[in-house]
Simulated scan of single mutants.
Amino acid sequence: MTTAWHALAQLVSWPDLTEIRSSCGTGRALGSARGEIAHFHSDRSVDLLLTSRAIRHYERDLRRSTAIRLVPGSHWVTVRLECESDVSLLMTLMSAALRAHQDQPDALAASAARCNDRLEAALAHRETL
């Protein structure tokens, strides 16, 4: 079992999360009562919807982590899962994401439109032009 699928199996057992269809069409997703919250795009990559407020709150720590990728303007963070400590980081961030969505329920619908999988592809395309 890959690191991402191991993390997915753990998270699916949380009472606030269920496995759902990914709106971006890539990989598998998790949803909370308020909507999509995580996209598992590959064996080693997960996009997690935090909200802009949560990202600002944790930004300094997120930028220090080699497992985290932030995309400018996105409410999603990408977590690269290469080892068990990355899975632990994802679990911590999932708790923060669930809390953020309880505090700001309206932010979820506005920010959920595009995960980093699509945004990163668009940014990479612009950089090659």
Rank of each mutant, 00 (worst) to 15 (best):
I37S: 04
G27I: 00
T26H: 07
A97R: 07
A97Q: 06
R126Y: 15
L93A: 13
D86N: 10
C83Y: 01
G31A: 03
H125Q: 12
A4F: 04
L89A: 09
T51E: 08
L89M: 13
L11V: 04
D43P: 04
S65E: 01
G35W: 08
R21C: 08
A107R: 14
R80Q: 10
A4I: 01
A54N: 07
T128G: 09
I37C: 05
L93K: 13
R63P: 00
C83R: 00
A124W: 10
H57V: 10
L119V: 05
S13L: 14
E36N: 02
R60G: 00
S45N: 06
C115Y: 06
V46N: 05
S52K: 10
P15W: 01
G25A: 03
R69E: 14
A33L: 08
L48S: 05
A112T: 10
A124E: 14
S88W: 09
E19R: 15
L48W: 07
R28V: 09
E127P: 09
M94N: 03
T2G: 05
D117P: 00
S95C: 12
A96S: 13
L108V: 12
W14I: 01
A54Q: 11
T92C: 14
R118P: 04
R44W: 01
S111I: 02
M94K: 08
T128K: 13
M91E: 15
A33Y: 02
D16C: 04
A96R: 12
S65N: 00
T92R: 11
A110R: 15
E59C: 05
R60W: 02
A96E: 14
A110I: 12
Q10V: 15
A96G: 08
I55Q: 01
P72L: 08
M94V: 11
T66Q: 08
L81N: 01
T92E: 14
C115A: 11
S13Y: 06
V77W: 05
M91K: 10
V46I: 12
S74K: 02
A67V: 03
A100P: 04
S32I: 02
L90C: 07
D61K: 02
L17D: 09
G25M: 05
